[in-house]
Design a protein around this nucleic acid. Sequence first.
DNA 1: TAGGCTGCGATTTTT
DNA 2: TCGCAGCCTA
Length: 679
Amino acid sequence: MSSIRERIAGLNPRQQEAVRFIDGPCLVLAGAGSGKTSVITTKIAYLVLECGMSARRIAAVTFTNKAAREMKERVQSMLPGKSGHGLTVSTFHTLGLNIIRAELKTLGLRPGFSLFDPEDAKALLRDLMNKDAQVDADQINKVQGIISQWKNDLVLPGQALSHAETEDDAYAARVYEHYVRHLKAYNAVDFDDLIMLPATLFERHPEVLAKWRRRIHYMLVDEYQDTNSSQYQLVRMLMAERETFTVVGDDDQSIYAWRGARPENLVQLGEDFPRLNVIKLEQNYRSTSIILNAANTLIANNPHVYEKALWSDKGRGDSIRVIVNRNEEAEAERVASEILTRRIKESAQWRDFAVLYRGNFQARILELKLQHYQIPYKLSGGTSFFSRNEIKDAMAYLRLLINPADDNAFLRIVNVPRREIGPTTLEKLANYASGRGVSLFDACHEMGLQEVLAERAIDRLGRFAHFIDRVRKRMDQNEAMPGIRQMFLEMDYEAWLFQNASSPVVAEKRMANVWTLLDQLEKSMAREDEEADETDDVEAAISRLVLRDILDQQAQEDDTDKVQLLTMHASKGLEFPHVYVMGLEEDLLPHRNAIDAGDIEEERRLAYVGITRARQTLTLTLARQRKAYGEMLNCTPSRFLDELPQEDLDWEGRPDKEDPEKKRERGTSAIAGLRSLLG
DNA sequence: TAGGCTGCGATTTTT
DNA sequence: TCGCAGCCTA
């Protein structure tokens, strides 16, 4: 392990400047592949080891669990002994969660509060909205989106109506009020609250803000261009006094504006902090200069507040190939066979290849072709572990255990597995509970139920409540995990799965998923490191699960030797020796909707992100015809192709320059090439 | 309760 | 047009 001084000496001058500048606000404009993670991690180590700042006073924030985990590992490896103790490296949401945990009382929450994921939140909204009239999923999604936006902009329920511009907004404002009230009654918060509650708390309680300013003296923010308003406000408030922070970002890689990210926060920062020191990292350590030049030329078509030109000393490298195919099937065929031949030619591994595309649907045909050639691949996205029913059930049990006020959790599992507690019983129970102002779970214990429910129903509800109470007691006695495991065995959840699954294999798999979840929970609890602080272990661990932490570690483990299939969005932050970008056509990249909305710039950035993933070779493909909405559409090559340096492009099957006969031959040439290679 | 039928939608998605 | 989700039927 090299010392911190050696490590800094190994950085380029700009990177060193970024690390050493600690006395004021600092914006690092880090181009793709310019070593921004090195800068952040080294800077943290520098602050602790050279500047004598306690790690406890430093908070580094990222957007994904994965990024936080990797960053933490890298920093810890630089900080010997206990010098790294108390360091915060987390996602924005985890930071928010920790603030909320510490300020429960002021926020009017009780210990054990539930964290609703967007699905839970939707379920609640559905309930609320269905009270007026039957509403469809579309309306619920719309309202959920509007409310989420308000929360991101720190608009409180009382203010929402004045922000409403449309009828939908006005309706959403009404739902918003009910929604917030219900969340409070359930002792629950949603994902957006994790940022909004701390931010509004700081606004209204200067003494709380002062406390946190004493706690955090230096902040570092990764992927700053992806911050939304509330996240920026949180950082701004915490750092307003000391002005000691470093944010690292790249406006050219802002591809999440549609999800609330505010790349203009980059400019805002300069206005809010006039002393801002802007440092550009322009040396790229990833790609050949042909690839970089293409990326630069493309992105030069976007307006920039801060100009930036990436360069590299990796040599010119191969030309960028542009392959025009007859249709989307030929395109997929071509990419698959290319990978096959190139792997042998370059003696590369499968994992050296990535295929990027605009929309997930494009992966389908490609999958078929890859399967046909028996090429192993890993598809990003897909149905997540947490959207599985058995996992949602298990999570609902966990939530109810630590938060009996969580009516949503109660309703989900009170009759799962079957306890013969039907809708009529539940409706009467709900009426009773709301009349008495207690939760459904608490209502199960009340004598007054006798007035509204038959004895059999009361008996069943009582047994269920008693069953949960027993586990809660064991949790109090520090036997949480054994208690929880036994709960699943005792209610014979497995038998219920077998009854419901289409096959025993499926049922077994589902039960295994539940055990995996509990294993993860236990592991997370065992990890009683500094972060777990003084708070209750089980609660913290369950929150971690809801925030999807821990789980994606698994995903990494089976990251074996496979071709990566990714959307361009999902590819951000990754790099591959050989990259294929599919579907460079008008209406696809740039996407039709973006063209209609007149927002080409984010699409251009998306293409930029795709291009800059490549280390050695870059291949762009397109189809002349594509099936969409049931009809065969003629495709026009993407305008982005025109924006690339034409002298570095190696066209194959260019529409206007080659006749159709020749193209057909080309389509099969890769296979022929492979055959000759294999002899 | 599994499988069949009908109707709808079709960018990107983390926490 | 095609894939699917959600609903209905045997």
